[in-house]
Amino acid sequence: MTGSPVAGRVAKLTDVWKSYGAVPVLKGVSLVLQAGEVHALLGGNGAGKSSLMKIMSGVIASNAGAIEINGRALTHVSPALAQKLGLYLVPQEAHILPNQSVLE
């Protein structure tokens, strides 16, 4: 399913839900990211920040909601598709690059 791009819009998530079993992590989250903007997702442990980013980058699937990347409405996001559309997730876990400094 494709849509026409909205000028400057990089990504749009609408009413995204995610739960792990009976434990809800995201409850109807909506977010619009425009080109040239800087955003910060803030919240305590378990607030759903990583889950939201993993859904947007195709690492995990949402239970409900709509995802649009670069004007393209997606019914299924995979990491390969997200990267093809220009979206990359930089994990927060430092152990994936154990031999590099912060500068590198």
Rank of each mutant, 00 (worst) to 15 (best):
L42S: 13
G28D: 08
E93M: 04
S62Q: 14
V102N: 00
V25Y: 03
L33Q: 08
K49L: 08
V25N: 08
A64P: 10
G65A: 10
N99S: 04
V102D: 01
G43I: 05
I55N: 02
A82Y: 06
S101A: 01
N63K: 15
E37M: 11
I69F: 07
V59Y: 10
A94K: 04
L81D: 13
L41M: 11
L33C: 11
G58R: 02
V102I: 10
T75R: 15
V29R: 03
Q92A: 12
G28L: 14
L103T: 00
L31T: 11
I67N: 05
P98C: 00
L41D: 05
I96M: 02
V32W: 12
H76N: 09
Q83Y: 11
A64E: 06
E104N: 01
G48H: 07
Q34T: 03
W17Y: 15
T75C: 14
K49P: 00
I67G: 03
H95C: 02
G28H: 15
E104G: 00
P24W: 08
I55P: 08
L89I: 06
A47C: 02
S51G: 03
V25H: 11
G21D: 07
V32K: 04
G44T: 01
R9N: 08
S51I: 05
L13D: 02
K18F: 11
Q83W: 11
G65I: 10
S78F: 15
A94Y: 05
Q92N: 04
W17C: 11
Q92E: 05
L13E: 07
I60R: 09
L41N: 12
G3Q: 08
L97K: 01
S4A: 12
G44E: 03
R72T: 13
G65H: 05
V6K: 01
S101M: 01
G8I: 06
L103K: 02
L26H: 08
K12N: 00
R9E: 15
M53W: 07
V23T: 14
V77E: 09
L85I: 09
A94C: 01
S57N: 08
L81F: 02
H76W: 13
I60A: 07
H39G: 06
G44M: 03
T75F: 13
K54A: 09
L103F: 01
V10A: 03
Q100P: 00
A61D: 15
H95Y: 04
V29Q: 07
S50Y: 03
A40K: 10
G44K: 09
A82I: 10
Q92M: 02
G44C: 04
S4Q: 09
A40Y: 13
E37I: 09
G65F: 06
W17V: 12
L74Y: 15
S78Q: 14
S30Y: 06
P98A: 01
E68S: 03
L85E: 11
Q83T: 04
I67H: 11
R9L: 09
G46H: 09
P24G: 07
I69C: 09
A47H: 02
V102A: 03
R72H: 14
A22S: 15
K18W: 08
H39F: 10
L33N: 02
I67D: 03
H76G: 12
L41H: 06
